[in-house]
Every structure is written in structure tokens, then in C-alpha cells.
Design a protein around this nucleic acid. Sequence first.
DNA 1: TATAAACGCAACCTTTGGGTTGCATTATAT
DNA 2: ATATAATGCAACCCAAAGGTTGCGTTTATA
Lengths: 113, 113
Amino acid sequence: MRRDVFQAIADPTRREIINMIAQHPLNVNAVAENFEVSRTAIYKHIKMLTECGLVVITQFGRERYCEARLERLAEVADWVEQYRKVWTERLDNLENFLDDLETKKRKPGRKKG
Amino acid sequence: MRRDVFQAIADPTRREIINMIAQHPLNVNAVAENFEVSRTAIYKHIKMLTECGLVVITQFGRERYCEARLERLAEVADWVEQYRKVWTERLDNLENFLDDLETKKRKPGRKKG
DNA sequence: TATAAACGCAACCTTTGGGTTGCATTATAT
DNA sequence: ATATAATGCAACCCAAAGGTTGCGTTTATA
């Protein structure tokens, strides 16, 4: 069972669930009521979210409140952010690299430096 | 076919591929050589990455160079960033909310579970 | 106490995901 | 012209994903 945050947020329903409880906790049924699919389907999504730490459940009587552990998204944020500089500064890697490559191949002369 | 960036980066192999070509383009075989699985498996991953715009392919002779379109990750960055304030400021939603809830439901006698 | 609400979860189904082997195609090299 | 490198892709396999129905359990309430 691969249970990482990346996979957890891959499903749009789960992203919606996270969004739904980001502001304040909701019990399982309350979450499920906001979707067309069955309570069991939502339950499974929530379970998966708990398995990767994105959601924590606290029981109150017969209700179980789902709280979002948004700090778990830091892993995703970090991964994405490492590339931000590359895409914002638009290093034109492709053109440079392929230009180089073409030059190298077409002419046996020295590569760029 | 759900082909969105969130799903694309859900797979660790695909994240590795992105990382591998983030700095400079590589042809399909060059990418595949870095993995244990077959070239076809990698080809499929690359295809999926192109289908959601995360990778663009440019052909040079018999080689096809894969370039990462990292700006597509902005969608992920945006989604995650909207929650950063919540998790960094640690609004203690759970405690507040559930404390409230307990107070409302229970009689004045406080008891912690 | 009986009933209903709020679950957890097994059993089952269908589609998708990720992998493989094998072969056809195109471009480069000999 | 022929061999080989780089690749696309069909056909197939198996496990996982996402869904359903149904039922048991625990807790609140009439």
C-alpha cells in the first residue's frame, strides 16, 4: 500500500474533502452529505487521508470529527517549490540544449564551452 | 481518462522523471536507462506526462527529447499554498472547534476525553 | 427499552495503473 | 542495401482504485 501525500491528493474528491474540512472539522457523515457518492466511498477516501496523515479523526460520542492536517502538504509544497526558480526564470533549457546538440551533430566542431 | 497534473505527479517514478529532465532534456531511452523497469513502462509514464502538459517532446532525427514544462506545477503550488497560512499560523481549529462543540452539547460539567 | 443515528467494514464489481513481451517503423551508420 | 539504434504501440497480465450493497456495532434519544 503506497500511502503518500502525493497519491492522496491525486484524487479530486479527496482534494475536495480536504478543502471542506480545512476551515473546521466535520464528522464523517457531514462530509459524505456533500457528495453524490455513497458514505462508504467517502469513508474510504477519508481513511486513506488518515493513513497518510493528512486527516486526523477525533471521536465524540457516536460522531467522529475529521480534521485536516494541512502541514502534511509541506512535502508537496517543498517538492514543487524546488522547481519554481527554473520555471519562473525560464532558463530556456530546451532551446539552448537542443541548439547545442544540433550544432554538435551537424558539425564535428567543438562543443559550446 | 483523468489526465491532470495532480495525478501525474502521484507516481514516484514520474516525479523522478521530472526531476531527471528538469535541468536538461533527455531522449526517451536516456530516461529509461535510469530505471529498472522496461523502456515501455517509462514510455508510458512519459506519455502520460505529455498528456497533461508536464512534458513536451521535440524530435531530432530518430531521437525524441523530453523537456519538462515545470510551469505546469503552478496548479499544484497554488492549491497547496492556499492552505499554507492555515497550517503555519496553526489556528488550532480542532481544539477550539471541538471544545466549543463539547461545551455546547454537554452540560456545564467539563470532562476531557 | 426500543429505535434511530453515526459509524466501520466485509464482500463484491468494474475500471485504471503499471508492468511485460513482441513487433513495426523510421533514421543513422556501415 | 543492410544492420542497428531509437522509438511507438498493440496485446496481455495482475494489482490497486474507486465504487456499491449490506450488515454489525456503538451511542444518543424518544
